[in-house]
Design a protein around this nucleic acid. Sequence first.
DNA 1: CGCTATATGATAAATATTTCACATAATAAT
DNA 2: ATTATTATGTGAAATATTTATCATATAGCG
Lengths: 220, 220
Amino acid sequence: MTNKHKSSYAISKQLLQRLPLYLNFLKNYADKDGYVSAPMIASAMRLNEVQVRKDLAAVSSTGGKPKTGFATEQLIRDIEKFLGYDNVDEAVIAGAGRLGSALLAYSRFSEYGLKILMGFESDEKLIGTEIAGKQILSIDKLPDVCKRLNIHIGIITVPAESAQEVCDKMIAGGIQAIWNFAPIHLNVPDHVLVQNQDMAASLAILSKHLREKLEKKEEV
Amino acid sequence: MTNKHKSSYAISKQLLQRLPLYLNFLKNYADKDGYVSAPMIASAMRLNEVQVRKDLAAVSSTGGKPKTGFATEQLIRDIEKFLGYDNVDEAVIAGAGRLGSALLAYSRFSEYGLKILMGFESDEKLIGTEIAGKQILSIDKLPDVCKRLNIHIGIITVPAESAQEVCDKMIAGGIQAIWNFAPIHLNVPDHVLVQNQDMAASLAILSKHLREKLEKKEEV
DNA sequence: CGCTATATGATAAATATTTCACATAATAAT
DNA sequence: ATTATTATGTGAAATATTTATCATATAGCG
Ligand SMILES: NC(=O)c1ccc[n+]([C@@H]2O[C@H](COP(=O)([O-])OP(=O)(O)OC[C@H]3O[C@@H](n4cnc5c(N)ncnc54)[C@H](O)[C@@H]3O)[C@@H](O)[C@H]2O)c1
Ligand SMILES: NC(=O)c1ccc[n+]([C@@H]2O[C@H](COP(=O)([O-])OP(=O)(O)OC[C@H]3O[C@@H](n4cnc5c(N)ncnc54)[C@H](O)[C@@H]3O)[C@@H](O)[C@H]2O)c1
């Protein structure tokens, strides 16, 4: 075999989205003998076998052994490393309402090397309090604090009406990537990344898929 | 022009994900004269012009007018219709903790014709209470209630340890599509759709994109 | 020790999606 | 009117992504 386990496959955006799923699966997978194979993962996760094989080849540092598969623990480490487990990234959140406080309290971000440092609010009753041990500051302080601490990821969980305004504050504070939960299109300069997380849309898409599936069944 | 405004383009999965973004943009778009054009949307949303044109052609019932564009209100209605605004879909949620109660209280689902009817819990203190006017019942009742009300969408916001167990209950209740927020791979029979919403992963991917962008800038 | 079954890795083929290029239609200005 | 401009719609080309096929490696077994 010509495997130099150099794994110089291109990583596609789709692969990037599958990696966390592999990770969840592998972490939960009751590890018989310390190895997993691509066909096994493929059948459990309902994916194409070749796709899994390529995905693993793209991120595995060691490659797999024919007939045996990949060392589970190593594979988990490789995926985590790939996703940035080791470089810690800091973020702030604007809007400590229902969703914002759920995110502030969510511990699982740290598994990917992410840390939400604090929240920013406009509600006087919330400013000065703590959520899950994290301070809630006035939204007016956001630009300065971000600049001073050199934070470049911002999360927006304020109502849609305030989202653009808060977004502008983040940009003024040097934020370069925004995770936006408000159901609104944000205007940002070229160099700023925006990832929209429109939850209602996600559920709508699932429901549409379901409807299509049911219709297809009727046809038969 | 050979436009029979029949718009028989194929709908890709990617398009399905872009539609809600168009919708957010259009709803917010200060409507000068009642029309929007594909090039205008494209430049505002940083998308390729042809892509927008094809996307709109795929969902627009009327087609657009050269030089003028698409009637904004009509376009909004067309997209909403496409996404299922008119067929109401009902769902239940398991786990009325921080995230679950945020979702229960989230009103925006109704904009896509979705309705979360009630929540199910294992915590005695929560059972019998209401969140945002929606009843919280014992998780044990989930299968019966879903069967009786003929509900086929379930949302999982319980801790990862309980997710599979809750998932099984949903399937026993005839649920056919599951929106899973627990960071774990769910085992389901063939006919059940699962959409995973691994939030930590989403943030991790954003942070990875950011890191790549910064690295690219350094190269230059 | 060779045989068989199974897994990897790589190349090629098939699909899916995006982008380009161009022909045509409507508007606005001359 | 005629013309310049801008937007649409569409077929073709370019990319990206997934799936099929095959050659090779190796663990387990008779
Ligand atoms: N609740 C959900 O499940 C959910 C799901 C998806 C998206 N969203 C979106 O997330 C956002 C927040 O939702 P929520 O349910 O947490 O709402 P919420 O009302 O509970 O919280 C919003 C918070 O933002 C704060 N806020 C308002 N203006 C602000 C400003 N200018 N600066 C700083 N803080 C400000 C408010 O004081 C409030 O605490 C909304 O845009 C909503 O559409 C919510
Ligand atoms: N908080 C977040 O921002 C966030 C983000 C993404 C994903 N998640 C995931 O969503 C899930 C819930 O997160 P959370 O922060 O709301 O946690 P939480 O602890 O606040 O809520 C979990 C709720 O589930 C209930 N529960 C536990 N076992 C149950 C069972 N068998 N049947 C019914 N209900 C049961 C608990 O009583 C609790 O109320 C977790 O899997 C978490 O990883 C949370």
